[in-house]
């Protein structure tokens, strides 16, 4: 006849379940991983703040679809234009969000999309100009309903 579960059995089971939940949780990117991803793009070239503007709501209710616009002050001529805009985050499972390539035929250095945010965090946008210089903007976003990591 099986004995009823003791308090200790229940605690051990509970601890085991908690442990397995921790193990299966996806690892989040860290600010260090974001710095590494940015370094891969810039190859160590200096990044200056300025020229780039991130437009995103400061308080996001639903992290599954966050509208974001990145624009860069640039005449977008053959002599002076943006070649690439890259968007990074520090606390989603992966630091990269998206990379967008453009040129003088774009007319404006501006791209809008919708992104996922797993939690409140800082976003970084980096623009590469045709002279090889890098410019950036950072913005903090507060997220009340997270995306990406919740189970279906």
């Amino acid at each position: 006849m099986p004995s009823p579960a003791t308090r200790r059995d229940v605690l051990i089971l509970g601890a085991g379940a908690a442990g397995s939940i921790l193990l299966t949780r996806p690892s989040a990117a860290t600010p260090e991983q974001m710095r590494e991803a940015i370094l891969e793009l810039t190859n160590g070239a200096p990044i200056r703040p300025g020229k780039v503007h991130i437009d995103v709501p400061p308080l996001v209710e639903n992290g599954n679809s966050v509208p974001i616009t990145v624009s860069v002050d640039s005449p977008m001529t053959a002599d002076a234009h943006v070649t690439l805009i890259a968007l990074f985050n520090e606390k989603n499972p992966q630091p990269n969000v998206g990379t967008f390539r453009m040129g003088p035929r774009s007319g404006k250095a501006r791209v809008a999309t919708r992104i996922r945010l797993a939690t409140s965090q800082q976003l970084t946008a980096i623009a590469r100009l045709n002279d090889g210089s890098f410019w950036s903007d950072k913005v903090d976003v507060i997220v009340t309903i997270a995306a990406c990591t919740e189970d279906s």
């Binding site: 599954n64 679809s65 966050v66 985050n89 989603n92 499972p93 992966q94 990269n96 969000v97 998206g98 990379t99 967008f100 390539r101 453009m102 040129g103 035929r105 774009s106 791209v111 999309t113 919708r114 992104i115 996922r116 945010l117 995306a147 990406c148």
Partner: peptide, 12 residues
Amino acid sequence: VFEADFYPAIAA
């Protein structure tokens, strides 16, 4: 004239 690389952080 325009190109993009998407990662999983791009919304559905």
